[in-house]
Computed example of a mutant assay.
Amino acid sequence: MPLQNAHPDHEELMQRIARDLVDSYDEELELEIEDRNVDEDGAPVGVDKAARAAYFRELFRLQGELVKLQDWVQHSKQKVVILFEGRDAAGKGGVIKRITQRLNPRVARVAALPAPNDRERTQWYFQRYVAHLPAAGEMVLFDRSWYNRAGVERVMGFCSDDEYEEFFRSVPEFEKMLVRSGITLIKYWFSITDDEQHLRFLGRIHDPLKQWKLSPMDLESRRRWEEYTKAKETMLERTHIPEAPWWVVQAVDKKKARLNCIAHLLDQLPYHDVMHAAVDLPARMRNPDYLRQPVPANMYVPERY
């Protein structure tokens, strides 16, 4: 895709892509800062520093609440399933990363299933997803889910009309069954505009650290924007049920989408603080006969930094 033909204002577009790239790299660094303060000297040029600092303050506050939620889920033996759906580059992975970043991966797991293999294609459609459902005290976040059939499989012709209709007959009953079994099921659709997806794809094309995110299927989905829109509208209409309603996240602004989604997720569950016994660090046992053996010098990783 020639960049010079992608937007009428080439210079403005390149500046926007550059700001997005710097912003994403800088955020990954800032999230690792132990004192959780934004380094004003390192903030990217052209960014509202006050707004950026406010974003991080709120993100860290919400992540603290997510830790409380995790403790409650584990303590009260809850079973929680959260589905994240949306177009390619809509920001699903970004919000999943921020949700799970401070959590115990044994409690909050991410399920991002690849395309089904030959054996899985002969199974009951929901079978491979059932294997990833939570046990008591677990949360599972599906980065795309069984709704693949209503989206990519429908648009790309990977399922027949009969299979497509059977999905819509089955999925409400399947989800009602999950809820009756004690699973809390929360479904999010991340909504972006045509122009925003176009911009994000260009950003990936010109970012060597993100080019792996682009597949031939992603590029084809871009071409079939209108078909995906129709499939999405049908999906939301036919699977928005009281037991498991859809929630649409406005995702053109990635930072606002993350905060809004996390805040909404916290509102969906009646979690509370779980009291923990005070932790006392025990004294180390010392044996006078113990002698630590030296490690051969050739076993050490070279200290280049």
Results as ranks from 00 to 15, higher is better:
Q78S: 09
V81Y: 00
W72H: 00
R109E: 11
V81A: 14
S76K: 14
Q63M: 12
A89M: 00
V67P: 07
L83Q: 08
F84E: 04
S76V: 12
R109P: 05
Q74N: 14
S76Y: 15
R102I: 01
E85T: 13
H75Q: 13
V80Y: 05
S76N: 12
G64H: 15
K68Q: 13
Q101V: 00
E85P: 11
D71R: 14
G86M: 05
V73L: 08
A90K: 10
G93H: 11
V73N: 05
L83E: 12
T100H: 03
A89E: 04
L83S: 06
K92P: 07
L69A: 08
V107E: 04
K77V: 05
Q70E: 11
I99P: 05
V95N: 13
V95D: 00
R109A: 11
L66P: 09
I82R: 12
D71L: 13
K79G: 08
A108H: 01
D88R: 07
K68A: 13
Q101D: 04
E65W: 12
K97E: 11
I96W: 11
R87M: 02
V107L: 10
I82K: 07
Q74G: 10
G91W: 02
K92R: 12
I82A: 15
K97D: 06
V95H: 07
R98C: 01
R87P: 00
G91S: 11
R87F: 05
T100K: 08
H75G: 06
K79A: 09
